[in-house]
């Protein structure tokens, strides 16, 4: 086909361009803005660790964790989503909306640490999926223990351990602690 054939074909066809604000529809597996499902997030900070551009920043506090994300800095490489152990992160299937100022699309999520059923202090959040990967079979006793804060969990383990050893050490330690 020579150039005349090319231009006459172009003339007959519909234009390939769009008039704003019409947009090209992205492919089904498009990598868009990252979303965090706080119900699944365990505030491990891997997303922060692998994020090259500093779009995701995870800051831990005593009773909660601040997860912030700025799409304006994001490179959409999807490493945070691939490596998220709890599958809390996902990417939108559509392009980000047009925005005017830097930081307009920034999102901040707060992951509140659940209260420990025993002492009431904040405990580490956990994720059902991770539990299933780590332990095929979860006993009710184990499920109860996972909800505890680290201190209480350690103490519970110690109790179980010392009970098995036979009480003496247990009383000794309690006396020490008191």
């Amino acid at each position: 086909m020579n150039i005349l054939g090319l231009i006459s074909r172009n003339f007959r066809r519909d234009p390939a361009t769009y008039r704003y604000p019409e947009r090209h529809v992205p492919a089904t597996r498009f990598r868009g803005i990252v979303r965090n499902d706080t119900a699944k997030c365990i505030a491990c900070g891997i997303c922060d660790h692998v994020c090259v551009s500093g779009a995701i920043v995870v800051v831990g506090h005593d009773d909660h964790c601040d997860w912030s994300y700025d799409p304006g800095r994001c490179t959409f490489c999807g490493r945070c989503v691939d490596l998220c152990p709890g599958e809390a992160l996902s990417q939108d299937g559509d392009r980000a909306p047009t925005y005017a100022r830097s930081g307009d699309l920034a999102q901040g999520e707060q992951i509140t640490y659940p209260a420990c059923p025993e002492c009431g202090l904040p405990a580490r959040p956990y994720n059902e999926r991770l539990l299933m990967i780590a332990h095929d079979d979860i006993s009710p006793e184990f499920r109860e223990r996972i909800k505890l804060c680290e201190r209480c969990r350690r103490r519970r383990s110690q109790t179980v351990l010392t009970k098995g050893l036979g009480g003496a050490a247990d009383t000794e330690r309690n006396a020490d602690g008191a």
Binding site: I7, N10, F11, R13, P15, A16, T17, Y18, R19
Partner: peptide, 9 residues
């Protein structure tokens, strides 16, 4: 020109 190039113009 745009139409011959396949654009809206």
């Amino acid at each position: 020109t745009a139409r011959l190039q396949g654009r809206i113009g």
